[in-house]
Design a protein around this nucleic acid. Sequence first.
DNA 1: ATGCCTTATTTCATAAGA
Length: 272
Amino acid sequence: MRLATWNVNSVKARLPRLLEWLAETGPDIVGLQETKVAAALFPSAEVEELGYEVAAHGDGRWNGVALLSRVGLEHVSLGFPGEPGYEGEPGEGLLLDEPGLRRPEARAVGADCGDLRVWSLYAPNGRTPGSAHYEYKLDWYAALRSALRDELSRQPALVAFGDFNVAPTDDDVWDPAAFAGSTHVTPAERQALADLRALGLRDVVPAPMKGPHPFTYWDYRAGMFPKDQGMRIDLVYATPAVADRVAGAYVDREARKGQGPSDHAPVVVDLS
DNA sequence: ATGCCTTATTTCATAAGA
């Protein structure tokens, strides 16, 4: 059984590469993030041709997550109970009584895939520590923790993977000094990850294809990928029932090369 | 080393990403 998670940074822009990668890699269950497309406009037909069932959750311009599975796809959840929406900065010009303003964004989709409960997650960025978006990020993590705790009481074989937008340790960024005062490395964000692990989830750390760090994201700018100036923010959190079956895991940095890549690389996990 | 931003949209400018 092969699992994979990949922030594709627009499934429409990435479709040729995604289809090629699926055919080459052959994952059984795939979580996608930042699909940036409404659910009805997800390219389901092209993916189904490769033998996958599709569950897509989308807002349109931003966010968007999906699950692809060729081992079954049932009991789909679009978002999770208690998931907050972004209410904006004070004075940002958003009307709090605008219909739908606080509607949760498309950042989580869950499903039963074979004998696994699987969640594809795209955590809020946070923008700047202390901002309304940062508070939203922490609130989203707190709600996620509650939702996963309830799920774990029913299904002990669970995987929550995706773009967590937090580097768990200083070893997970190319230069800790470069992130002083930034999101993704603050104690509160790292505590949010620790709180998830305290539920019984394990961080399945992949092997890098090259170099010492299993980074999964490199900024498009300034040649940061060839210099391996990246971050490990795409994570696979699994319960012991799943983590004990891990036979291998790697970051597919080949998918970050060449023409028109995403700025994230896929993480691939093989289960015995 | 496999390159020196990219995406979608209210598009020729902007917001967001991390």
